[in-house]
Design a protein around this nucleic acid. Structure first.
Lengths: 186, 186, 186, 186
DNA sequence: TATGAATGAGTCTTCATTCAT
DNA sequence: TATGAATGAAGACTCATTCAT
C-alpha cells in the first residue's frame, strides 16, 4: 500500500546469512531457549514467514548456527597450525582454539553448553579436592590449582565424549591416566 | 476445589526427595527443557500444587538437581582417593569422577551440557586435525587420536572456565601449554 | 501446531473492536474479575493468541474498555448539552450522563465501581440517618430520602476524588457545605 | 513436638478480630483481589486452617470487612451530628463522613470502589465540560470546577444507586435537577 | 519470494479449600 | 480449637508454525 523500505527480494544465501547473523545476536543475549523466531526475523528485518523459506524449523536454525560456529574456529586453528613451526603446532592449534572460542565466548557458551544459568561454572569443591591431591602427589607441582582445573575439564570432556562413543572407553581411560602422570606425576 | 483423596502427609525431606527423584527421571528422558512440572508431580505421585510447597520454581528445581548430582559424584571421588595409595590418588580421583559421571551419564549430560540434541558430540573435524598434528609432532605418540580427544576437551573446558574467571587466563594458558608438551611433546 | 481453519484476516481496528465488544459482554455478565481471556476470544470467535496481537495483557484490555465507555457517554452528554437551551444545559448534561450510564448501567457499574458483589448498594443505615437529619433541619424538605441519597453519593465521590487530588480538599469541602445548605438548608 | 509460641486457644471474638485486622492491612496494601488467605493468616499469626474456623470463605471475610468499615464511619457521623447545633447537623454529618472515609481512605477506596488501578480518577474530560457549562449558566458561580466535581460524583452515585433500586428513578432525577438548579442555577 | 495475521496447544504458577492429626 | 500439608481447578501468557494474499 504505502511505500515500504526496499522489501525487495535478496539472493537466498544472503537472506539466510542475515537470519543467522540475527539469530547469533539474539542467542548471545537471551540464550538458545530465549531465542524466538520473532526476535530473529525482527533482527533480520524480514517478516516472520520469510524465516520458514530458509530454515525448516527453529531446531534447524540452531543446528546451522552451531555448524557455522565450529567451522569458523576450525579454520582459525588450521591457519594457526599451518603458520607455526613444526615443533609448536599442537600447542598453537590448541591456543588458537582457545582464542577462537573466547572471541565468541558467549556464543559458544550458549550454543554448546548452557543448560540454563549457572550450569558452566567449575565446581569449586572439585577443584579444591583435586588441587590438594596434586600438591600432595608432587610437592614441586608448578600450579596445582591450574592443573586441577585443566584435569577436571579434561575428565568431563572425555565423559561427554564417551556418551556418544562408548567404544573409545579403554583408550581414553589410558590417555587420562597418562595425562595425570604427566601433569601431576612424581 | 478442595482435596479429594486422602492426602497422606510425608516428612518434608522425603517429599522433596521424591520430587527430585521424579525430576531426575524426567530430565534424563526428555531433557531439561522437556521437563514439565506436571511430569514431575505425576512421577512423584503428588498434586501439582505440592511441588510449589517444596520448590519455588522450575528453575529452583533444576538448580537443586544439579547440586545433588555434583555432590553425589564428589563424595564418590573423595572416597576413591582416600582408599588409594598415595602415589595413585590423582588418577584414582579422576577415574572415579569419570565412572561417577558415566554412571549417571545421561543425567550429567543433560544437566550440565546439553543445549539441545546433537550439541555434545566431539567434532570429528577438530579431532582429525589435532590427531594429525600430534602424530607429526611425535611419531612415537602412543595414541594420537585419544590424545587429541583429551586435549580438545581440556581446551574447551578451560575456555568455559575462563568465561567465568577471566583472571585465570595466564595460568591456564601456561598449563595448557605444559599439557601439550607433556602429552604431545617431542 | 499451526493453523487449522481458514484464518480470515480482518482489518486490525475491526478485530480490536470485536474483542472489545466480546469483553464488554463478558464483563457485564461475570464482572471484571470474572473476565477470562478465553471467554473474550471465544466470544469474538478468534483463537487465544489473537488476543495478544491486539492487547498486551488483560489489564490493558480492561483499561481500553474503560476508555471506550467514558468516551461514549461523554459524547452523549456533549450532544445533549449542545441541543439544550442555554438555561438548562447543566441539568441536561447531568441527566444525559445519568441516562448514558444507566443505559450501560451494568457495564459502568462493573467497570468503575464493583469490588465484588454487594459492594455498591447505598447503605440503608447511612441513608436513614441522613434523611432524619434533613427532615429535622428543614421540615418542608420536599424529599429528604432522595436528598440523602444524593448527598451521600456526592460525599463519597468527593472522597474518592480527594484520594487522587488531595489539593482540592479545601475547595471541595466548601462546595459540599454549599450543597448541604442549598439542598437541606433552613 | 518442640515448644511453640503460645499457640493457645483464644476467645473466638478476639481471633476473628485479629483476622479482620490482618485482612485490613493486606487489603490496603494489595487490594481486594490481591488478598490471599495465606497473607491473612500469616498476618494474624495463625495457621491457614484456623481461618475457616471463623469465616466460611474469602467472600465472607471481605463482606465482614466492609461491614466493619461502614459501621466505624457511621458511628463517627452519628456522634458528629449529635454534637452539632441543630442548624448545622446535615453538613456536620456530611463532613464527618468525608473525614471518616479520608482517614481510612485507602481502605474504603479498595473495599468499595477499586476495580483495578486507575478506576477511580475523576475523568478530566467530563469535569472540563461540566465546568464550562456551569460557568456559562452562572457567570457568578463561586467555583465552577468544584461544583462540577461534586455534581459529577452525585450523578454517578445516583446512577449506581438506581441499579439496585430502579424504583427510585423518578424521585432521584427530580432531586438531581433540584441540585443542579441550586448549585448552578441562574 | 515475501508477508504477517491467525492459530492453539503447551506451561507455569496461584490460591481457595479440605481434612487427618 | 488449631494445624499445615496436600489438593487441583483455573487462568494468563508464549511462541512455533501455517497459509491466504
Amino acid at each position: 500500500m504505502g511505500a515500504k523500505r526496499t522489501p525487495r527480494t535478496k539472493p537466498g544465501e544472503e537472506r539466510r546469512s542475515d537470519l543467522l547473523d540475527a539469530a547469533e545476536r539474539v542467542v548471545v543475549e537471551r540464550g538458545v531457549d530465549g531465542l524466538t523466531i520473532d526476535d530473529v526475523t525482527a533482527g533480520a528485518g524480514v517478516a516472520k514467514g520469510t524465516f520458514y523459506l530458509h530454515f525448516g524449523s527453529k531446531d534447524a536454525l540452531i543446528a546451522a548456527l552451531r555448524e557455522r560456529c565450529v567451522e569458523r574456529v576450525l579454520r582459525r586453528q588450521r591457519d594457526a597450525a599451518a603458520d607455526a613451526e613444526s615443533g609448536a603446532r599442537v600447542e598453537r592449534w590448541v591456543l588458537a582454539g582457545l582464542d577462537g572460542y573466547l572471541d565468541d565466548a558467549a556464543l559458544v557458551d550458549v550454543l554448546f553448553h548452557a543448560a540454563g544459568p549457572g550450569a558452566v561454572t567449575t565446581p569449586e569443591g572439585a577443584v579444591r579436592q583435586l588441587s590438594r591431591l596434586i600438591a600432595e602427589a608432587d610437592p614441586d607441582a608448578p600450579d596445582p590449582r591450574a592443573t586441577a582445573i585443566v584435569l577436571y575439564h579434561a575428565l568431563h570432556g572425555v565423559a561427554d565424549h564417551l556418551l556418544g562413543e562408548p567404544d573409545d572407553g579403554e583408550r581414553l581411560r589410558a590417555e587420562l591416566v597418562r595425562l595425570c602422570r604427566a601433569l601431576a606425576g612424581p
